[in-house]
Amino acid sequence: MSGLAPVPDAEHESVPIGSNDDVVRARQLVRALAQQCKLSLVDQTKLVTAASELARNTLVYGGGGVMRVGLVHRDGRVGVTAVFEDSGPGIPDVDQALTDGWTSGGGLGLGLSGARRLVDDFTLQTEVGGGTQVAITKWAR
């Protein structure tokens, strides 16, 4: 899949997401970076929560995948970007998937739409049969 999403700097870290434990590890890694770039406590919490939602989506709907995370710099600002990638079935109707309350599984349907509200930048690329990539960024104020 062609990745146009902001990819973290060379020092990014990759975490496989194949189990519930990996979701916890992904959260911890995102939290550590959020603290490192001095996001406010509320922004840290929002970013880690968004990452938790997306990591779970990668596991449950994407059949597992990988998270890449790192610090990014733009216009003198620093932020944290996390990219979640799977090679699962993809999302046939993106608008629908981004609607509050819509779910193809057993969830509440808040994961994707909620995660988008919690971050500053959100990009989603998906292809039916070709997987899904979601990138999120939160910038330090």
């Binding site: 406590l41 840290q44 939602e53 909620g114 509200r117």
Partner: peptide, 14 residues
Amino acid sequence: MRPAVAITLVELGL
């Protein structure tokens, strides 16, 4: 519940 958790939950839609 921590304040940041409350803020995040409401924004999440819960």
